[in-house]
Amino acid sequence: MAKTQLNVRVDEGTARAARERALARGMSVNRYIEELVRQDTGEAGRTFVEAAADFMKQYGSVFAAETAEERHRSSATGTGDGRR
């Protein structure tokens, strides 16, 4: 897809927030802004899936550990469903 340059002016706080949010997501400010516009124009489903995939890359091990701990508690209590 051909790219077009778009220049916008925002206050420094907004620019800082955009840089920080993009960095936190591991993407350029350009891609971050593109994703926001796509989301706003109805491509939220794809954006959500990409964000969820990024989230799971970062936190998947936390969920895996929690699931393993929950299974351990279930087998220890004999409930089979994680409740005590």
Rank of each mutant, 00 (worst) to 15 (best):
M1N: 12
M1I: 05
M1T: 11
M1H: 07
A2Q: 08
A2H: 11
A2N: 11
K3R: 11
K3G: 04
K3N: 08
K3F: 00
T4N: 10
L6I: 12
L6H: 10
N7T: 15
V8W: 00
V8H: 02
V8A: 11
V8D: 01
V8E: 01
R9H: 06
R9M: 05
R9G: 04
V10M: 05
V10T: 00
D11T: 01
E12T: 12
G13C: 07
G13F: 08
G13N: 12
T14F: 12
T14V: 13
A15E: 07
A15I: 02
A15G: 00
A15Y: 02
R16E: 15
R16M: 05
A17I: 08
A17E: 15
A17D: 12
A17F: 13
R19Q: 10
E20G: 06
E20D: 15
E20N: 09
R21M: 11
A22M: 05
L23K: 15
L23F: 14
A24F: 04
A24W: 04
R25L: 14
G26I: 04
M27K: 04
S28P: 03
S28R: 04
V29I: 14
V29L: 01
V29M: 03
R31W: 00
R31K: 02
R31Q: 01
Y32N: 00
Y32A: 02
I33C: 03
I33W: 00
E34D: 03
E34F: 07
L36E: 08
L36R: 02
L36A: 07
V37L: 05
V37M: 05
Q39M: 09
Q39I: 10
Q39Y: 11
D40M: 08
T41D: 07
E43A: 09
A44E: 11
G45F: 00
G45Q: 00
T47N: 06
V49L: 15
E50V: 01
A51N: 13
A51Y: 10
A51T: 14
A52V: 15
A53L: 13
A53H: 13
D54S: 13
F55R: 07
F55V: 06
M56N: 12
M56D: 14
K57R: 15
K57F: 08
K57E: 15
Y59V: 14
Y59D: 15
Y59W: 14
Y59M: 14
G60P: 05
G60R: 03
G60W: 10
S61T: 13
V62W: 13
V62F: 09
F63M: 13
A65D: 14
A65Q: 13
A65H: 08
A65P: 00
E66T: 07
E66F: 02
T67P: 01
T67A: 13
A68C: 04
E69T: 07
E69L: 13
R71A: 02
R73F: 04
S74H: 04
S75E: 12
A76K: 11
A76R: 11
A76N: 05
A76W: 04
A76H: 08
T77R: 11
G78S: 01
G78D: 00
T79N: 05
D81E: 10
G82Q: 04
G82T: 02
R83L: 14
R83G: 10
R84S: 14
